[in-house]
Computed example of a mutant assay.
Amino acid sequence: MKSKLKVFGVVAFAIALCFALVGCGGGDKADPKKAVIGTWELSELTGASEDDMAIMKAFGLTIEATFAEDGTFKLGMFGETMDGTWDAKSADKVSLTIEGDSIDATIKDGVLSIEVDGEGMKFKKTSDEVKDLGSSSVSSDGATSGSSATDDQAIQAIDKEIYSDDNISVMVVDKKQDWLDSCGYTLVITNKSADTAIDFSGSYGTWTVNGKMISPYIYETIQPNAYAETFMTFMDDSIKSIDDLVNVQGSFEVTNSKTYDEIVTFQVTMP
């Protein structure tokens, strides 16, 4: 879980760096352009370890750049793309222009490096062919189109209360697959107490998905007379879409946030 949270930070940094590139003003000596044309993939990012990069790739969070022979350039990051132009200034330097702003990238030992204010990205060439990164969501004039990289991939509305007593109520809003391919349920948990904060979690070792033991990720602290909307996820290789979330059963535990005394534990079958 900590690794996944760290990846969120790395992803946020990568997005910020990519857009900083937009706002910033060793190759083939016989033909400098030939060394550049093709598809490049992010291999290093300031602040990211090799493990971070591997986790990002496993989640499909890739950053790729393509350079076409006609001088057009495309940067694809997490499903979004930016269009621009490029020009080989020399065998080891390439000028990139997006939204009228230019920045120089260097090529050395087969690695293309982009640096903005001391922070950088390094790309390695994966193919001499220009990969289709899809339609641009940020064009050369700054217009945006298409869906966000953080859009949920699939949502099935449910809107059903699965538990209620004098202390708490729990409603299932939907079943969904989010932008990171995580599958689970959106819950709204209401603390009915006027003076007691509660901790809400899934009871470990009680949950099954279609007969397989899989513990969900969920933990919320909810103040008196307040509610929380949260996403309960099931991280397992057997769950690739919301269609795999069948016969989901288990128990939730509610405790006093200060004393840790149990308030109630209840079993549910998810709709």
Rank of each mutant, 00 (worst) to 15 (best):
L21N: 06
D83E: 14
A58P: 10
T106E: 12
S238T: 04
M235Y: 04
D28C: 07
A157C: 01
I222Y: 00
M121I: 14
S145I: 00
D31P: 08
L245P: 05
E44K: 14
D128P: 02
I63M: 11
E64R: 15
T269C: 06
P32D: 11
E44A: 15
G211D: 08
I155R: 08
L21H: 07
T230Y: 08
D31S: 12
D141N: 15
F234P: 09
M213P: 01
A48G: 11
K57H: 06
A154F: 02
T208Y: 10
S95T: 14
K125T: 12
I155E: 09
W207E: 09
A54P: 11
V248K: 04
V268Q: 04
N210G: 02
S257A: 15
S169R: 00
D244I: 04
L75W: 09
G134F: 09
V254H: 05
E119I: 05
D244Y: 02
V246S: 10
T230P: 07
I168R: 06
Q267R: 10
T255R: 13
E220M: 09
T97E: 15
D151T: 02
S257P: 12
V172D: 01
S102W: 00
E119G: 01
L75N: 14
S3G: 12
K176A: 13
Y260D: 13
A35F: 05
G60V: 05
W86N: 14
Y260T: 15
G211T: 05
V173T: 08
A68M: 03
T208M: 08
S238G: 00
F200L: 08
F231E: 02
I55Y: 10
A35W: 06
L96C: 11
S102Y: 00
M235T: 07
G47Q: 06
G120Y: 00
S203I: 05
K122E: 13
F234W: 10
L45E: 13
L45G: 10
A16Q: 09
T66S: 11
D101S: 14
I55H: 12
I162P: 07
E262Y: 00
I63L: 08
D261A: 06
I158P: 03
D166S: 11
E64W: 01
T66Q: 02
Y185L: 03
L17P: 03
I114P: 09
K240E: 10
A88G: 14
D87S: 15
E161P: 01
P216K: 04
F266N: 00
M270K: 04
V268E: 05
D174F: 06
K240A: 03
T269L: 12
D28S: 09
Q177V: 01
V248H: 03
V7G: 02
V11K: 10
E253V: 07
S43N: 12
D151S: 14
V264K: 06
M53Q: 12
Q249C: 08
F13Q: 00
K2F: 08
T144D: 01
V188W: 01
A88F: 11
L180G: 02
K93P: 02
S135H: 05
T221K: 09
P216I: 06
T97R: 05
D166C: 00
E262W: 00
G47F: 10
V138T: 15
Y204G: 12
G202I: 04
K125A: 04
I103Q: 09
Y217V: 13
K176P: 03
E64S: 15
V116M: 08
T62A: 07
T196K: 11
S182T: 07
A226L: 12
A228H: 11
I37G: 07
E99N: 14
V172E: 05
Q156K: 10
C18E: 12
D178C: 05
P32N: 12
E262Q: 04
